[in-house]
Each structure stands twice: as structure tokens, then as C-alpha cells.
Design a protein around this nucleic acid. Structure first.
Lengths: 252, 252
DNA sequence: CGCGCAGTTGACGTGCTTCAACCGCCGTGG
DNA sequence: CCACGGCGGTTGAAGCACGTCAACTGCGCG
């Protein structure tokens, strides 16, 4: 993965996760599928669905048909309350899955929108279940993936009794770790979502988020040129964030 | 714990969910298992683990061995941050599962403690996976159960940008719905957790929670005698809560 | 060129937290 | 028997962190 960041032309292929770094691919990779099974799984997974900034991947209320993985780009999921207020429920970076919450109800509770030009893998849930009928290891792996999502959501719940400062620091650390886990730089990245998305997600006003970014910058914790973020003192941020929860893997 | 409150003696068996109302039992019931399989599943599920108020079901850091269902009583799960602050991540009522977040990491991120005298079903995860190897429908059902948990957690995330009033109303509606779904009264129940647990869970100070209870009471929305709650105007509370999210099943 | 939106910054108001005092309840021990 | 200390819960008073309102900037786009 050519990480030719810094000043030069951005190579799109460099921003893609390799299949082996993708959560979705964990479905087949580490569980010892035979050649034949692997080929079959690859037929099931439809790669190459594209979306541009603002495009909907699916909308709230639509029937549940498939789960998705981000190959390149990024996605947000939002729910909409009666009164029209939106709530961002999550951001999804390259290699991550989304749409899992719809398995139970049969229809999507949230809408998913691309935050930038995004490539997705789509895997029809019916086919996945059929396949899992023959190869249960697939389903076991799905359990693990969903468990991790639950764990992450619980970590997020932590934010409820934390200060604005702690929330934003935790958010940045989380993004950083997730990028790093997928083989990108954890200290320098683009925040593809708007400040208001971040605020909404963290339960803060846009203005508060903005003020915190400048404060963090003055304190030498990070450098921000609009959406381009460079973490200068990860430990410092980690300290503010108040140390994430779990024994291992901490911040996801 | 003799709950001989006010007038009548409470029949303990009446406070238990029937197996068919238990989330765990959904593993076998609706998917057409044969007699033999069903019998085998019942051998796997160890019923009857007891816990008294304050007892730990499992502790943070312990190896993950089993998932649990509440048969009677109630449970809270809490994580502990570096600085010692506790964070309540969930309450679990009769018929509900907990411990699912540990599947991914292999050890528990949270501790689980009984809120009162509690009866639990314990199902060793190894056995469940082995069984799922032969009967994949089991695993498919697990996916659904976990999906619902993710969905619920996302609903919770909503609370982030809501007022204290909205949070508590939403919390009460949620508890009410969950009791009702399991065949208990949705309008009159015991809140087995302390006010400070509620506050912690919702990200509010104890005092705020307390003040809200008295305000709701003055407004005729509910009647509270310490932990015993009677919802007098569910629609009113629903209105304050701001209508839960999903197309169906709303508030779980 | 002008519009609109995202982001920043300042001034102000307030909903919540914090601090504090107090009550009722319960278990413990003199 | 009462005294006691501790804990959970309620209530009041005071402070502050954050939201709200508003003005301004820069930038992309038609």
C-alpha cells in the first residue's frame, strides 16, 4: 500500500483497503475455506458499488437486503426522529461493515450516506445465510464481527457523562486507531465528515467542536488544516480521552 | 428479599418469564428444531444460576465462557475507566440476554452485577458454537438477537443531544415496553436500579434524575413511591421522549 | 460576481452539575 | 431499647460548561 501522502497527487488505489484488511473479508480469510468455497464466496460478494458524496447507500425504512463494507471512502449512518432531528449513529471507514442493525427487523432503521467518493462491497444477506448453512464458520465469524460492534457502541455510551473535551479526544483516538488497524496512518488523516456531523455524533454543538479543535491546536495536541488532521501528541489526547475501556484493542 | 410491599405478597413465580418469552429461548423455538435437537439444546443451557443483590455474574477481564439470560430479577453491566469512574452500559430485564459484547475479544469488557435476587440461564459459548456447527439455524438466530442489540444501542446513542427530560422519558418508555413485551405490566413496575445507576446510564447527575421524577409526578405523568413506578400518561411521556426511532418495535 | 454553505470566533443565557444540607431507612452494636 | 453511622433519595442555592444567537470569513460553484 503506497502511502504517498504529503503534498503530492493522491493515488486512489492507495486509499483502498486490501481485501485482507477488510472486515468483510474476515468472513473467509482466517477460517480455512477451501478454494472452491472461497471462489463461491467471492461470487456472492458483489464488489464495486460506487457512491458520491451525499449519495444514499440505503434509506431508513427500506427492506433489508444486504450488508455493506467500505472498500474506499467513508460513510455515515443517520436516523431521523419524528420531529425531523437527525442523529448520526456511526461513521464507517475503509474495511468496516455497516447495515448490521437491520438484520433483526428486516428493514433499515437508519439511512447510510457516502461522505465522499466511496467504493463499497455489497453482500446479499440471503446468499450469506444460505452459504452459512453449509459453512457455519461463516456465521460464527459474523457473530464476532457483530460482537465487536456492540462492544464499540458500549464504549461510545461512555461519552454520556464526559466533558466535550473528553468526547472529542476519544473520537479522534478512535478514528486514529481504526485507520491504523487497516494499514493507514494513524497520526495523519482526513476527517471526511463535517464538523456538524462530528458534533451531532458526539452530542455537541458545532461551535463547541470548532472551539475544541482550535484549543487542541493551541495546546500542541494536533495540527488541523480544515479537514486534514495531524495528531502531534497521541498520548496527550489519550490522556484526555480517559483511556478507553477494554482489555485489548482498546478503542474500537 | 421479602418484597411484602404494600398490601399483597408477591408471588415469585409470577415474576419469572416463561421460557417461550425469553430471548435465549428464541434460539430453539421458532426455527423448527426436532425433538432430539431440542433436548440437546436444553442440556446445553444450564438453567438456575442464582445471584443476590450486588453479586457479580462475571467481572471485567474474565475470560469469556458463556452468555447469559435473565430468568427472573435484573442485572446491570458496568465498565470501569482508568480513573475509576464507573459507566453503566446496560440494564437487563427478565428474558433478555447479556454478555454478547465479549464474543469478539474473548474476555469481558464489562462486569455484570445483579440488581436484586436474580435467576439466570447460562449457556456455554463453546457448546453453542459446536451445536451451531450442526444446526446453523441456531447461529442465524444469534445474528438476529445481536442485531437487535446493536439497534438498541444506536437508539441509545440518540440520547447524546437530548435534554435531561427527554432522556428520562425515553428511558422509562423503553423499560415499560420491554416489560410489556415479556408479558409483564408496562404501566406499573419496579425500577430495581438505583437513581444513581439511572443517572450514570443516562449521563445525568443523580440530583437531576431525582428532580425530574418529582417534576414528572407533579405533571401527572407518573406516580412514584420510591422504586415503585406507575406510568399514568404513557402518551405524554412518549411525546417528551420524542418518538423512538425504528419502523417497527420502536423502543427496543 | 454573487449566492450558499462550512467553519470560526465572540457575547450571552441557561440547563445542568456541583456543593451542601437534610430526611428516612436500615443494620449494627452498645 | 436507643444511638450511631452509612447509604439512597430529595431539595435548595450557586457556578459553570455548554448551547444559542449572531457576525464574519473563506471557499466552491453556478
Amino acid at each position: 500500500m503506497n502511502q504517498e501522502t504529503k503534498a503530492e497527487v493522491i493515488d486512489l488505489s492507495a486509499l483502498q483497503v486490501a481485501c485482507r484488511d477488510c472486515t468483510l473479508f474476515q468472513l473467509c480469510l482466517p477460517i480455512g475455506l477451501g478454494e472452491a468455497d472461497l471462489a463461491r464466496l467471492e461470487r456472492i460478494i458483489k464488489t464495486k458499488r460506487y457512491a458520491r458524496r451525499g449519495d444514499y447507500i440505503f434509506r431508513r425504512g427500506e427492506g433489508f437486503r444486504a450488508i455493506y463494507a467500505v472498500k474506499a471512502g467513508s460513510v455515515k449512518t443517520v436516523t431521523i426522529a419524528e420531529d425531523g432531528r437527525e442523529q448520526v449513529t456511526g461513521f464507517h471507514l475503509p474495511g468496516e461493515l455497516f447495515g448490521l442493525d437491520a438484520i433483526a427487523g428486516g428493514s433499515h432503521c437508519a439511512s447510510a450516506r457516502a461522505l465522499e467518493r466511496t467504493t463499497l462491497c455489497e453482500i446479499p444477506f440471503d446468499s450469506l445465510e444460505d452459504f452459512g448453512e453449509e459453512v457455519p464458520a461463516i456465521l460464527r465469524q459474523m457473530l464476532r464481527i457483530m460482537s465487536r460492534e456492540i462492544q464499540r457502541d458500549h464504549t461510545l455510551a461512555h461519552l454520556a457523562n464526559r466533558s466535550a473535551e473528553e468526547r472529542l479526544a476519544a473520537f479522534l483516538i478512535s478514528i486514529s486507531n481504526r485507520y491504523r488497524e487497516r494499514g493507514f496512518s494513524g497520526s495523519e488523516f482526513h476527517l471526511t465528515m463535517s464538523r456538524s456531523d462530528i458534533g451531532n455524533y458526539l452530542g455537541l454543538a458545532v461551535e463547541t467542536v470548532s472551539r475544541l479543535f482550535t484549543r487542541f491546536q493551541h495546546e500542541g495536541l494536533l495540527a488541523a488544516r480544515s479537514k486534514h488532521i495531524q495528531l502531534l501528541d497521541v498520548d496527550g489526547l489519550q490522556g484526555i480521552a480517559g483511556e478507553a475501556v477494554c482489555v485489548r484493542g482498546a478503542s474500537r
